[in-house]
C-alpha cells in the first residue's frame, strides 16, 4: 500500500518536474539570483499582505469617526496617529492600499487585454485593420496622458458620478491611456513572428485564424508582456495617486494613497502633522520602486541574451 502511494507520488513529481522545466522555472531561478529584484518582490508581497490581510487585525473600523481623537500624533493606541476626523491612519493606509493596488492591477490587466488583442489582430491581418487600430492608438498617444485624465476626471465630477463607481471609472480611464503603447509593442512582435516558419507550418495545417492568433502568436509575446505589464502596474498606481490627490480620481470617503496625501495641501497639516501625509507618500514611493525593480529584474531574467 505504502509503496503504491510513494510510486504515484514520485510519478506526479517527475511529471510536474518535466512540465515546469521550461521558461518559468529558468526565469524564476535567474530572478532569485538578482538580489535587488528579489527585495522588490519581497516588499511587494509584504505590501499586499499588509493591505489585504492587515485590516482584519486592526481594532479600528476603517471609516469610523472619533471626534475625541482628532489629529493626534502617533501613539501606542494609534501607531501612525489619527486624521482630522479621528480615523486611525494605519487602518486607513491599509484600506487605501487595497484600493490603490487593485486599481493599479485592474488597470494593467485591462490595458494588457485590450492592447494585446488589438496588437495581435493589427499585426497579423495588417492592411486596413492595422491602419485603423494603429492610427487610433497614435491619436491616443499624441494626447498627453495626464491632461486627458484631468479632462475626463473633471467631466466625471461635473456629472456627479457616485463615488462608489469612480474607482471603476478610474480603472477604465487608466487603461484607456495605457493600451496604445502595449498594442504597439505586441504588434511589432507579431509582425516579426508571423513571418517565422512555424506560422507557415500552422498555415499548411489548415488551422483557423483565432487558433493561430491566440494559441500560436500571443504566447510568444508573453515574456515581453510580463515585463511591460509589471512596470505598468507601478505607472497606473502613480497615475491614480496623482488623480486622486487632485480630487479627480477616487474621492473621499473612499481612501486611496493619493487622496490621503491631499492632507499635505493644507499648510498647517503639511508643517505640523507629517503623520498625515508621510505614510501614504512612503507607501506609494516604496511600492512603485519595488515594482520597477521587479520589472527590471524580470526583464533581465527573461532576456535570453543576458547570460551570466
Amino acid at each position: 500500500m505504502s509503496s503504491i502511494v510513494t510510486e504515484t507520488a514520485g510519478l506526479a513529481g517527475t511529471r510536474t518536474g518535466a512540465r515546469r522545466s521550461s521558461l518559468w522555472r529558468d526565469t524564476f531561478a535567474k530572478l532569485k539570483k538578482n538580489k535587488v529584484a528579489m527585495c522588490g518582490l519581497v516588499f511587494l508581497v509584504i505590501m499586499f499582505l499588509f493591505c489585504f490581510i492587515g485590516p482584519f487585525f486592526s481594532p479600528y473600523a476603517s471609516g469610523k469617526v472619533n471626534t475625541v481623537m482628532i489629529n493626534k500624533p502617533p501613539s501606542m493606541a494609534h501607531w501612525l496617529g489619527t486624521d482630522n476626523l479621528g480615523r486611525d491612519i494605519l487602518t486607513r493606509l491599509m484600506q487605501a492600499g487595497r484600493i490603490s493596488l487593485t486599481v493599479g492591477l485592474a488597470a494593467m490587466l485591462l490595458s494588457v487585454f485590450i492592447g494585446s488583442v488589438l496588437g495581435v489582430v493589427a499585426g497579423y491581418y495588417r492592411g486596413v485593420v492595422d491602419q485603423i487600430v494603429m492610427r487610433f492608438a497614435d491619436i491616443l498617444m499624441t494626447i498627453p496622458g495626464l491632461p486627458l485624465l484631468f479632462i475626463i476626471g473633471a467631466i466625471l465630477s461635473e456629472w456627479k458620478v457616485p463615488t462608489d463607481y469612480r474607482i471603476y471609472i478610474v480603472m477604465l480611464m487608466l487603461s484607456l491611456i495605457g493600451w496604445p503603447e502595449l498594442a504597439r509593442l505586441v504588434r511589432s512582435q507579431i509582425l516579426s513572428l508571423r513571418e517565422r516558419e512555424f506560422m507557415q507550418a500552422t498555415e499548411s495545417l489548415g488551422l483557423r485564424d483565432h487558433r493561430k492568433l491566440f494559441f500560436h502568436l500571443l504566447p510568444n509575446t508573453i515574456p515581453i508582456l510580463i515585463v511591460v505589464a509589471t512596470l505598468r502596474v507601478g505607472g497606473a498606481i502613480l497615475s491614480e495617486s496623482v488623480l486622486s490627490y487632485l480630487g479627480l480620481g477616487v474621492v473621499p470617503p473612499t481612501p486611496t494613497w493619493g487622496n490621503m496625501i491631499d492632507a499635505a495641501n493644507t499648510l498647517i497639516d503639511f508643517q505640523k502633522r507629517p503623520w498625515l501625509w508621510i505614510p501614504p507618500g512612503f507607501a506609494i514611493f516604496a511600492t512603485v520602486i519595488s515594482i520597477n525593480l521587479l520589472g527590471d529584474g524580470l526583464r533581465d531574467a527573461l532576456d535570453p541574451k543576458m547570460k551570466r
Binding site: E197, F198, E203, S204, L205, L207, H216
Partner: peptide, 17 residues
C-alpha cells in the same frame, strides 16, 4: 490543408512553435 494534403518542412527546428 492538413486534412487531405499535409506538408513537412525543411527545418524541423523552426517549424514548431
Amino acid at each position: 490543408r492538413g486534412n487531405d494534403i499535409a506538408m513537412i518542412f525543411q527545418e524541423p527546428m523552426s517549424s514548431l512553435n
